[in-house]
């Protein structure tokens, strides 16, 4: 029996009269790579913000590694890593200074050795004393991954991680996600538009439509349930239009 790394129960969030997320109930098992799909405004980023405790739910609850986002937000934050869409850093500081700051905020007292290990894992060495303001989008994304995994979180949240990356950057990121999952058993929750990447990296998927979860299953079951469809893209559009 697998235990849930992420579990939500009727999780909801409204912004005024707008219901951004309604009654989201799902479980993501430990060690899974979960892809949350949906059109713009479907509620994907709201979901990640709720699960990372950046937003408070208006109803329902969620737990990450057993910590409730409502009653134990500090416990949640201690066991997650987070890479927001279009991640930004302190441009006037060097790579090492940026990573030291985030590592110390995560509780690492002498983080330099760990930073070297992580940068080595990401094959991103030789930039320690370079200011982050001079980095390309792809380099920033790698710094983003580095800051998110410095403290070896149990669950990693990635919000549109491939946004703005060139094909090589997308491939590198995909390989990194797979390695983090395989080598460290990290549970990964990923929002994305790139269905081709979901097919290659995710073990299970969910589809949000106007704030409601319209599909949630393993990748294998999802593909098997729609034998007539050629790709995940076809399946996605079929499920999305059926829910609309």
């Amino acid at each position: 029996m697998t235990t849930s790394a992420i579990s939500t129960s009727a999780l909801s969030r409204s912004f005024g009269a707008h219901q951004a997320l309604a009654d989201l109930t799902l479980d993501v098992a430990q060690g899974e790579v979960f892809g949350l799909l949906g059109h713009n405004g479907a509620g994907k980023t709201t979901t990640v913000n709720l699960l990372t405790t950046l937003l408070e739910p208006t109803a329902g609850d969620a737990s990450i590694s057993g910590h409730s986002v409502k009653t134990d937000a500090a416990g949640v934050r201690a066991c997650i890593g987070y890479l927001p869409e279009n991640v930004q850093f302190y441009d006037n500081l060097t790579l090492l200074e940026n990573l030291r700051f985030f590592a110390r905020l995560s509780g690492l007292r002498r983080p330099d050795a760990r930073i070297r290990d992580v940068l080595g894992f990401l094959d991103f060495t030789g930039h320690d004393t370079q200011r982050v303001g001079t980095f390309s989008k792809g380099m920033r994304q790698r710094v983003g991954i580095a800051q998110a995994v410095l403290h070896s979180p149990a669950v990693l949240f990635l919000d549109e991680p491939t946004s703005g990356l060139d094909p090589e950057g997308v491939r590198t990121l995909r390989e990194t996600i797979v390695r983090l999952n395989h080598e460290f058993g990290m549970t990964i929750f990923m929002n994305t538009h790139l269905l081709s990447e979901v097919t290659k990296t995710c073990t299970s998927i969910g589809i949000l439509n106007h704030g409601r979860l319209v599909h949630h299953d393993s990748m294998t079951n999802t593909l098997a349930a729609f034998p007539a469809d050629e790709s995940l893209e076809d399946i996605y559009f079929q499920l999305d239009s059926a829910a609309a």
């Binding site: 990372t52 405790t53 950046l54 500090a74 934050r77 201690a78 997650i80 987070y82 927001p84 279009n86 991640v87 930004q88 850093f89 302190y90 441009d91 985030f102 905020l105 995560s106 509780g107 800051q147």
Partner: peptide, 17 residues
């Protein structure tokens, strides 16, 4: 304003801070 301007605030607040 630094954190709000560059959106680094989300990275900070997702930490046990």
């Amino acid at each position: 304003l630094r954190d709000r301007k560059s959106a680094t605030v989300d990275l900070v607040l997702s930490r046990p801070v």
